[in-house]
């Protein structure tokens, strides 16, 4: 390339590091930013830095939060006897949107995967076990239905089961609101196998 504008190139390169953003999209975003009012760009820049400075992980459940412990852990209206175990903080956002679960959460920070170096020691499992000392009656395992998520659920249900707490796994089945016609066949077949 003979035609180079350094600051623009730098922006494109940094944007292209974001997940799901390729070189072309990065270029489009960069040119959009270039056209935008300075005040709006400042707002974006501030939001970027602020999220880094102010959002940390809750020392109890490892959810993302601006206060420690997080709002879920300190909310007196939440049921402290049930803990839902998830892989990532983003899973909590999804579950919260259902408005169905009123207990507490625990974020593992991933799922077991020797290939990427994740072992029980690198997940927040010890921290989960230490939370059982309170009046916890039930642990709900809501790890993903991937092979790694399943292995994690199996590991946890054995480890926690030995400690005398009730451990359950979220059900697998058909998505609601979808026609049976459009369900993928593996999900449908499993829904039949695990019918109630």
């Amino acid at each position: 390339m003979s035609y180079q504008i350094n600051s623009l190139n730098q922006l494109i390169e940094n944007l292209a590091k974001l997940p799901g953003i390729g070189k072309k999209t990065a270029q489009r975003l960069a040119f959009f930013i270039l056209k935008t009012e300075r005040s709006e760009v400042m707002e974006l820049a501030k939001a970027l830095v602020s999220v880094k400075d102010n959002v940390k992980s809750c020392s109890v459940c490892f959810n993302i939060t601006e206060t420690d412990p997080c709002e879920v852990c300190t909310n007196p209206r939440r049921d402290k006897s049930i803990i839902c175990v998830v892989e990532e903080p983003s899973n909590i956002l999804t579950i919260e949107r259902t408005n169905e679960f009123r207990g507490l959460y625990h974020v593992l920070g991933g799922a077991l995967s020797p290939l990427t170096g994740v072992s029980p020691d690198t997940l927040k499992i010890r921290e989960l076990i230490s939370r059982l000392e309170g009046d916890v009656n039930e642990i709900i395992l809501a790890t993903n239905p991937t092979v790694e998520g399943e292995a994690t659920a199996i590991y946890l249900s054995k480890t926690l089961g030995n400690l005398g707490v009730k451990v359950t796994r979220i059900a697998r089945g058909l998505p609601m609101g979808g026609d049976i016609e459009y369900a993928d066949e593996v999900t449908l077949a499993k829904a039949f196998a695990n019918r109630s």
């Binding site: 020797p114 029980p120 399943e150 994690t152 199996i154």
Partner: peptide, 10 residues
Amino acid sequence: DDFLDPWDEE
């Protein structure tokens, strides 16, 4: 052994 267990079960 502890690490292998969940994988063998699955």
